[in-house]
């Protein structure tokens, strides 16, 4: 089948998740054409998208597309699906994709898979449900599909291919009713939903002044920082760091939790992490049942020791 991937730009460059989306698309295309759609001016050589399987890149570089609007981008994605004769549109299940996918699906009258967690079998996709407490299979009943892929669902794979760049002029560019006034970057460099490693702290850390322990370890690991719900509710940490059922759901390769007991709502948000390390003073903490590795000990002592051990390990590997 022919697959079209929506590539999200950040500061004029394709975001890192393009690699995963294109790998996924290539596996789904199974010999069909993999195209990429890029909307807005871009400072990078887009033929590089061929590294991960794009054969064709459609680039609409009208300056008014630089500021993101899900309605505009979604309509153009729908048009590009028809233009490229694609059967499937793939977007990331993130802050951009969640605004683009519904519009494209509504325009194309396509079935929409929200949060695909892997490759489909025929027309049925694995997705997460009940905030990670369960897995579901969703069957698409239409001929054209829109699939929003959960970040970190499959490892990206480099290919030797090259992509042909094609300048694309949509039939019309809808005027955006959204005016972007400003964008602010969070202090942390790594966005939590797509982080491969995450270090998280709970009430056991006793106060925001102790977060240096979490941040030091995160820095050593190249990890994002996160927290439990009580910690963000009392304002020790910003809301966007709250992982759990009513916060965000993540699935990093490595999740290290310190001073979090593991309430069912927290587990729901993190239990699809590949490897879970739990550090807690209470040997009976429910989180240990969901962990791969457990350390019964005081986070104030264990975290610095772990940070040191990682430092040492990195020095040995270097």
């Amino acid at each position: 089948m022919n697959v079209l991937v929506y590539i999200d730009l950040q500061l004029g460059k394709p975001r890192k998740n393009a690699a995963e989306l294109l790998t996924y698309a290539s596996k789904m295309a199974d010999g069909g054409t993999v195209s990429a759609l890029v909307l807005g001016p871009c400072s990078e050589d887009l033929t590089q998208l061929g590294d991960f399987g794009a054969q064709k890149v459609l680039h609409a570089n009208a300056p008014e597309l630089a500021s993101f609007d899900g309605l505009t981008h979604g309509k153009l994605l729908a048009e590009a699906v028809q233009f490229s004769q694609s059967d499937v549109a793939i977007v990331a299940f993130d802050h951009s994709g969640r605004a683009v996918a519904p519009v494209a699906a509504a325009k194309l009258k396509a079935g929409l898979v929200a949060g695909a967690a892997g490759l489909p079998l025929g027309n049925s996709f694995p997705v997460k449900a009940f905030s990670g407490k369960a897995l579901a299979k969703v069957k698409v009943l239409t001929s054209v599909w829109v699939v929003a892929l959960t970040p970190n669902s499959i490892p990206s794979e480099k290919t030797a291919g090259t992509a042909a760049l094609e300048s694309w002029t949509p039939s019309s560019i809808p005027v955006s009713k959204i005016k972007v006034l400003a964008t602010h970057k969070n202090a942390s460099d790594i966005p939590l939903p797509e982080a491969e490693r995450v270090v998280s702290g709970g009430r056991g850390l006793k106060g925001p002044e102790n977060w240096g322990l979490v941040e030091d370890l995160a820095k050593e690991l190249g990890a994002a920082t996160a927290c439990s719900r009580p910690v963000s509710d009392i304002g020790w940490r910003p809301h966007h760091e709250h992982v759990g059922q009513t916060g965000i759901t993540i699935r990093p390769n490595l999740y290290i939790a310190a001073g979090i007991s593991g309430a069912i709502q927290h587990l729901a948000g993190v239990n699809s992490s590949k490897t879970i390390v739990v550090i807690n003073t209470d040997a009976e903490a429910p989180f240990f049942k969901a962990a791969d590795y457990g350390v019964v000990g005081d986070a104030f002592e264990v975290l610095p020791k772990l940070t040191q051990a990682i430092k040492k390990f990195k020095a040995e590997q270097a």
Binding site: H95, K179, V180, H184, P191, L192
Partner: peptide
């Protein structure tokens, strides 16, 4: 916006 915020009107 995942890693930051955007102000819009």
């Amino acid at each position: 916006i995942g890693g930051g915020t955007e102000e819009v009107q």
